[in-house]
Design a protein around this nucleic acid. Structure first.
Lengths: 220, 220
DNA sequence: ATGTTAATTCATAAAATACTTACTTAGGCG
DNA sequence: CGCCTAAGTAAGTATTTTATGAATTAACAT
């Protein structure tokens, strides 16, 4: 019976929450400014805590960055696992993968931005994250399996390298997000508008399905 | 002792050369580290000149960055103009455009890197470069013309939006360069190796031509 | 209640970093 | 020759930014 002792103010003494808030703020800061442009100070101010805390929980700016990177990559793994591609017909499975991939990038600007920055750094930190490789191997195998089944059934034509196909899907899904600002400036059309992105989605699905299909099926 | 007075070291008093060296060093520095990560000090040390000179010629780090961006974008314009797409048969013209685009990105890592960083900055500076929009309009028109001719001749099928097609070409050509480090780390395969890039080239040409063609022509 | 440990704050050290002020020298031109 | 401007140098400085050392406060088991 601790009766009135229960009155703990919610913000006080909540390490997990503080840590989570710091990580979330870091995610946004690194996404918006890159590793070098990110300011530790801005992160702590966004959370409303002391700079000292950041070092208490994460040790350094680098380690915080790595934690953020790891966190965001864990997300895509989780979502990919729900896809359940093996139980569907090849054509439908492939269409579903393409749509999922497109929508994932479209709906996760943080992922897109952090990945871009990590590539600017030549992948210096992603290599330090264990279990990043193992997570995506099943995906490649799933793609290979879909293609093999499709070929056996005669609905798919020439068999491409699964990795090429996956890179193609990602490329078509994400390039306009990765390079939206320069492309928009160059062509005077907003590639990041909802309209353009919707059109891009249809185009992406179209292209991939067209590439895999036998070629004598779909022409209108 | 004015005898050896002729000993003017070649680096002295050569403004054009110094300026060009600064710009070139800046190009590499900004490409390798991004705007925020770039160090003015490193640039001047690479040239072997005094920091003051950089400000003498360019005014500020920002203006130097803009100058570098402008410089690298001037390159692609010049090369694009040589393509001469209107005089070739549609299929060949399109193939040539795809190959050129692929090879351009493949051979210009500086362009790829600077573009990536400019997108990280949300295109803050590219908008300030006049005449960047006008330069790429002819390209879109050329693509539209090729597609119209191809359709009229019956060698191309359904007509896509030229901008979608161009973004597709660029996406397939550049995504593995833009995201090579993360993709390589994830899949455990070096996407930046010469072998993989060669395979990617064939794949890119294949996909684009396949997308445009009527679909009943090429299947082996 | 009390001693221990973890969480938090304060104050600031220490290192980079973009940019300047003040000066020197080179070389074209009358 | 001697002036004048542009090119170049030497040596800062003001400011920002990462990172800590030590004091303070809350939580919790005993």
């Amino acid at each position: 019976m601790t009766g009135p002792a229960k009155k703990r103010t919610p913000r006080q003494r909540d390490p997990e929450r503080t840590r989570a808030q710091l990580l979330d703020a870091a995610l946004h800061e690194f996404a918006d400014h890159g590793f070098h442009g990110a300011r530790v100070d801005r992160i702590t101010r966004a959370v409303g805590c002391n700079p000292r805390l950041l070092y208490h929980y994460f040790g350094s700016k680098e380690k915080l960055y790595i934690a953020a990177l790891e966190h965001i990559f864990a997300d895509i793994r989780a979502q990919e696992r729900e896809l359940d591609l093996d139980r569907q017909e090849p054509v439908q499975a492939m269409r579903r993968l393409v749509e999922f991939t497109f929508d994932f990038f479209d709906g996760n600007p943080l992922f897109v931005k952090l990945t871009r920055n990590e590539n600017l750094l030549e992948g210096r930190f992603i290599a330090q994250i264990a279990a990043i490789r193992t997570s995506s191997q099943p995906l490649l195998e799933a793609i290979g399996a879909i293609m093999a089944r499709g070929q056996a059934q005669g609905v798919f034509g020439h068999r491409y390298d699964p990795l090429q196909i996956y890179v193609t899907i990602v490329a078509l899904s994400a390039h306009h997000l990765n390079n939206g600002h320069t492309l928009s400036a160059i062509f005077g059309i907003d590639l990041l508008s909802q309209d353009w992105r919707s059109a891009r989605r249809a185009h992406t699905v179209d292209l991939v399905m067209n590439a895999l299909s036998r070629g004598d099926s779909s022409q209108g």
